[in-house]
Write a protein that binds this DNA or RNA. Structure first.
Length: 633
RNA sequence: GCCACCGUAGCUCAGUUUGGCAGAGCGGCUGAUUCGUAAUCAGCAGGUCGAGGGUUCAAGUCCCUCCGGUGGCUCCA
């Protein structure tokens, strides 16, 4: 029989050879990295026998499919370990995830001791090198084998008619599984259990409690160690720690989820705001401010009462119930409605940076990235349908410009019509096509999430990754055909008739809170100079240089820079260290030498050592970098 | 909101296993040092051990309730 390989070559091999044997003969030097293979489009084990001519290609850990196979095998290893420790545990399922894998069990609540024990058993078992052995069995046999495990029985019953039921055994552990798997547990020596947690059952309150064990797998111990090191690094960069260290923000126990901006943080927020506001003024926006509280009838009109009430804070006064606004849109709708509108006013772009309150469930709060009160760089664009395309195009250009400023890489996600939607299908199709067209033009990577759109219109979400690869959603651009109708918005067209505008809800950075959280992790607290609370710190070498330092401070202040003098009686090395720890971008040292020749010894963050600058050169350099909003000093 | 874990000085943490005097480093204050690019030396102050209740001769330590945080889950117009 003939086997076709990925390089296009064709090999004649005897019938019944295993996939692994064929691949090893093809590329002996690389075959150690093969953990499974694709046989005629189907992922299979390396010990699968090939009985007829076929196309064959190997899978390694570097392939997403190969990586998933290893994660899934790691999940089996976890199940083997846990059932060894707690024999009555009932495994349910253990799929790969973006990060690694998990395995869900019906079992008593786990303890940290269980976790330690599990790690020990996993290490031991991995080293034992048991093979993953596939066996295809009848349904009846499977039902008997898993008679005590209702979850597995359900999977057996749910499997499509005609599908082969297979089990994999590893040592004495047998699990119902489609496969494929890595050849043996030596492949799993880089498996680590990260933690466990309860999983909210989707089957209602009567269902037994499920515990999820999460982990991650690598083909070697060294790769695992590198990953764990990266995670540790990520912890050190955590914006909650960095924000506290730099005195940017904090929280009061009495106001859980409500950020407290400290003086340093307030400077950063104001600079971000200024950055965005400058753009708005150049782009034909008007700024508005609408109330924080509305009578609930407004939310009944907007649809929030129906769809968002659980997340709203309410308050009463004189027998009226008011809701704290969770979004700015109702206020903008009411401004549009407040007088007669003409097509000549469109696009009408109303921006509003107001505090929004959302009563997020306590368990979902997370530092600055998930809070109950925040301010978005929000705006609502009232447009006619033929203006949508151009407006979106301008928005994507602003996204490019903004995220480039912060050295952040972004991608888009286009979410399309969900199962239940308002409006007619034609309008949806047209809107989706417009969004996709503009996305294509932008040249930026995007993916489509079918059915994930809001019920009132399709949307484009903006995702950024921090420097260690974790994804975050920040901005969103949403088309809305419904709220204008609910608020009975209309404008008089050139044809003299009344028309409903389309509204584009859009926020680009997302919120100051989340954006700054991600930015802090991205740059590890080394904010670009234009955002830094202190841009220049001047260190006089000794007491007699303080006057000189103050003179320089005045000069820099006159150039609108944020400067301070460090004149404590600490030693110079100590004060240099403090400035470095505070991430100050420019550290200027002045002493006898500088008095003599009118220079400044400048230490630029990120560069090694210091350099001598004349005072005008120094001031010019710093103000230019700040004015240009350069990312690095 | 659900499950688990955590909460000791401003910060980072030891002490909790096995109940028996409240500890360290950094930071702060005071003094000495007048210093050339990531930590000079000495002294002092700083605590309702998250809050409340219980067990005990005795609770930071054991038990219960609550609050807050963390990791997941759910949610995320």
């Amino acid at each position: 029989m003939t086997v076709r390989l990925p390089d296009g070559s064709v090999r004649e091999v005897p019938r019944g050879r295993t996939v692994g044997e064929i691949l090893q003969a093809w590329r002996p030097e690389e075959s150690a990295t093969y953990l499974a293979a694709i046989l005629d489009g189907v992922a299979v084990d390396l010990d699968r026998r090939v009985e007829a001519g076929a196309a064959l290609s190997p899978l390694t850990f570097e392939d997403r499919a190969g990586r998933d196979i290893l994660q899934h095998s790691a999940a089996h290893l976890v199940a083997k370990a846990l059932t060894e420790i707690i024999p009555e545990a009932k495994p349910t399922h253990g799929p790969p995830t973006d990060e690694g894998f998990f395995y869900d069990f019906e079992v008593r609540p786990l303890t940290p001791e269980d976790l330690e024990e599990m790690r020990r058993v996993i290490n031991r078992t991995a080293r034992a090198g048991d093979r993953f052995q596939r066996r295809e069995i009848s349904r009846a046999e499977a039902e008997e084998m898993f008679a005590t495990n209702p979850h597995k029985l359900r999977y057996i019953h749910e499997a499509p008619e005609g599908e082969t039921v297979s089990v994999y055994s590893t040592g004495d552990f047998v699990d119902l599984c489609r496969g494929p798997h890595v050849p043996d547990t030596h492949w799993l020596e880089g498996v680590h259990v990260l933690g466990f947690s309860a999983v909210q059952s989707t089957e209602g309150s009567g269902a037994p409690p499920i515990q999820r064990v999460r982990g991650v797998g690598f083909p070697t111990r060294a790769k695992l160690d590198a990953y764990l090191k990266m995670r540790k690094e990520a912890e050190a960069r955590d914006h909650r720690a960095v924000g506290a260290k730099l005195q940017l923000f904090t929280f009061f126990e009495e106001s859980p989820g409500f950020p407290v901006w400290l003086p340093n943080g307030m400077i950063v927020v104001r600079e971000l705001e200024r950055f965005v506001t400058e753009h708005l003024h150049e782009s034909g926006y008007s700024e508005v401010r609408t109330p924080l509280l509305f009578d609930v009838s407004v939310y009944q009109t907007s649809g929030h009462w129906e769809h968002y009430r659980e997340n709203m804070f309410l308050t009463t006064s004189e027998d009226r119930t008011f809701g704290w606004k969770p979004m700015n849109c109702p206020g903008s709708m009411m401004i549009f409605r407040s007088r007669a509108r003409s097509y000549r006013e469109l696009p009408l772009r109303l921006a509003e940076f107001a505090p929004l309150h959302r009563n997020e469930a306590s368990g979902t709060l997370h530092g600055m990235t998930r809070v109950r009160e925040f301010v978005q760089d929000d705006a609502h664009l009232f447009v006619s349908e033929d203006q949508i395309e151009q407006e979106i195009r301008v928005l994507l250009e602003w996204v490019r410009s903004a995220f480039t400023t912060f050295h952040l890489e972004w991608s888009y996600e286009l979410s399309t019509r969900p199962a239940t939607y308002l409006g007619d299908q034609e309008t949806w199709d047209r809107a989706e096509a417009t969004l996709e067209k503009v996305l294509k033009e932008s040249g930026v990577q995007y993916r489509v999430s079918p059915g994930e759109g809001a019920f009132y219109g399709p949307k484009i979400d903006i995702h950024i990754r921090d420097s260690i690869g974790r994804p975050w959603q920040t901005g969103t651009i949403q088309l809305d055909y419904q709220q204008p109708i609910r608020f009975a918005l209309e404008y008089q067209g050139a044809d003299g008739k009344m028309h409903a505008p389309v509204v584009i809800h859009r926020t680009i950075l997302g919120s100051w809170e989340r954006f700054l959280g991600v930015l802090l992790e991205h740059c590890n607290g080394r904010l670009p100079p234009w955002l830094c609370p202190v841009q220049v710190r001047i260190l006089p070498v000794a007491d007699r240089h303080v006057e000189l330092a103050r003179g320089l401070l005045e000069e820099l202040r006159a150039s609108h820079l944020r400067v301070e003098v460090s004149d404590t009686l600490e030693t110079l090395p100590k004060r240099v260290r403090e400035a470095e720890v505070d991430r100050v971008p420019y550290i200027a040292v002045v002493g006898d030498q500088e008095i003599g020749d009118g220079t400044v010894s400048l230490r630029i963050r990120g560069a090694k050592g210091s350099a001598s600058f004349s005072r005008p050169e120094f001031i010019d350099r710093v103000s230019r970098r700040v004015r240009e909003r350069a990312f690095e000093p």
